[in-house]
């Protein structure tokens, strides 16, 4: 399966990745090669096989719903690229 420029741009958009022109070009070649390699999975008969998302035989793990200390605001905000008061600052999302 060849991976076109348009498909690379579409997937990059879904993954919120800005790619340069040269990255789009190399990515379409490399993804084509990688997906070609992955096509061998099609040869395996998996009819009726339950998918295994997780290897442990555990389902829901519960603990007591107790109040515990969290990060103080200053520590939680210490790594923020931009903060205003006790808030993370982002570009406007509404006009």
């Amino acid at each position: 399966m060849a991976f076109t420029r348009e498909q690379v741009v579409k997937i990059a958009d879904l993954g919120r990745l800005h790619l340069t022109e040269s990255e789009i070009e190399s990515m379409s070649k490399q993804l084509t090669a990688i997906l070609g390699f992955f096509e061998q999975l099609e040869a395996i008969d998996t009819e009726g096989i339950e998918p295994m998302a997780h290897c442990l035989p555990i389902q829901n793990v519960f603990r007591e719903d107790e109040k515990k200390p969290g990060l103080p605001p200053d520590e939680a905000l210490a790594n923020a690229p931009k903060r205003v008061g006790d808030f993370f600052s982002v570009p406007p999302i509404l006009d």
Partner: peptide, 13 residues
């Protein structure tokens, strides 16, 4: 892609 891989994962196990 993804579900197929998870099925093969079980075969590996």
């Amino acid at each position: 892609f993804y579900v197929k891989a998870l099925q093969v994962r079980r075969l590996l196990r």
